[in-house]
């Protein structure tokens, strides 16, 4: 009897939603753990498999045909240099372009056009990298060939532009293809940040008599600076690990220099792995995995540096 009167007043047993809470908490905790474990497993695998190559003696490494008598460090360093240089070229081209596109979409274009353009840029991000590579070989290469030839002829005194040789299978072309590839992700990120610029700042600037360009310089760009940096780092992360596009476009080489118009000078780590792995065996595979470990560390530190930069400029971020 008592139970009947109790029931409407205080509900016994677990509160509604408690089960859902604990399930969701467990799920998100589990997901968080999974990502850490996965990262650890990948790092562990790379380290474990590259140990034989790291510990191998010079004589043993000489048995690996494609290393051509180099030791591990002098094999990895030119590759790392090529990887970073191609990404740097890509960033130099892509970041200013992205800022321009993002500004146009967020502040200049009529609303309808802006929306359409935004979708278009996002669509670019969905194109697989091998398609970009094919596009680079079939379309971009013949197009930039004459430009490079002209540069080399007229500005050859500037070392990076010296001694261009057709076809344009050089690091400059690879960098341009990478630039097009990372354009969408950088643009999309920067656009979001620009759109979050406080309207009050913009209106204040305009009210003081600033032109639209001055307003952008005073209000939008300072506000978006950390966003631009993090967007650039996101793009760089993609460019560093890009394989197919570089593999298709570049005549590889193992030299550390800035002759970006010459063939056979540079190679990226990821493209080198893809190119050598099919015929590699034994220690050769370990060496390639060791270069993979190096790339892993490289991207890790690039991201770390990006975080540090963003944290230092936290006062500008959209969070305040």
């Amino acid at each position: 009897m008592a139970a009947v009167t109790d029931e409407p007043a205080i509900r016994r047993g677990p509160a509604p939603g408690r089960l859902g809470n604990s399930i969701f908490k467990g799920f998100s905790l589990g997901s968080g753990i999974v990502i850490v474990v996965l990262l650890g497993l990948v790092a562990g695998f790379l380290l474990y498999r590259s140990l034989p190559a790291i510990l191998a003696s010079r004589e043993q490494l000489e048995g690996v045909g494609f290393m051509q008598g180099r030791d591990l460090l002098s094999y990895v360093l030119p590759l790392a240099f090529g990887t970073v240089l191609s990404s740097a070229i890509a960033l130099i081209v892509a970041v200013p372009l992205s800022i321009g596109i993002a500004l146009f979409i967020s502040h200049y274009a009529p609303r309808r056009l802006a929306q359409g353009l935004g979708y278009l840029v996002d669509l670019l991000a969905a194109i697989p990298s091998v398609v970009f590579g094919l596009w680079g070989v079939a379309f971009l290469m013949p197009l930039v060939g004459p430009v490079f030839a002209w540069l080399s002829e007229n500005m050859g005194w500037f070392p990076p532009f010296s001694d261009y040789q057709a076809p344009a299978r050089n690091l400059a072309t690879a960098g341009l293809v990478l630039a097009v590839m990372i354009l969408p992700i950088i643009t999309a990120t920067i656009r979001e940040v620009f759109l979050q610029t406080p309207t009050l700042h913009e209106e204040a600037s305009l009210a003081l008599g600033a032109t639209r360009w001055e307003m952008i310089r005073q209000a939008v760009l300072p506000f978006g600076r950390s966003g631009i940096i993090s967007a650039a780092m996101l793009g760089m992360g993609r460019a560093l690990g890009e394989t197919m596009a570089v593999l298709l476009v570049l005549s590889p080489g193992f030299v550390i220099n800035f002759f970006v118009l010459q063939p056979g000078q540079h190679q990226s780590i990821a493209a080198n792995i893809a190119s050598q792995l099919p015929e590699a065996s034994g220690l050769g595979v370990d060496v390639l995995i060791a270069t993979g470990l190096f790339l892993f560390l490289l991207t890790f530190f690039v991201n770390l540096a990006a975080r540090a930069i963003i944290a230092r400029r936290a006062e500008f971020s959209g969070a305040n």
């Binding site: 057709a166 076809p167 299978r169 298709l248 005549s251 080489g253 193992f254 030299v255 056979g264 000078q265």
Partner: peptide, 26 residues
């Protein structure tokens, strides 16, 4: 040799890659 010994050359990956490079330049 199995690995090309001269640096600074044009090259292509696999048979088809080499074919494309040769086709691409007079």
């Amino acid at each position: 040799i199995e690995t090309w010994p001269i640096p600074g050359t044009q090259s292509g990956a696999q048979t088809s890659g080499l074919f494309d490079v040769v086709s691409g330049a007079e």
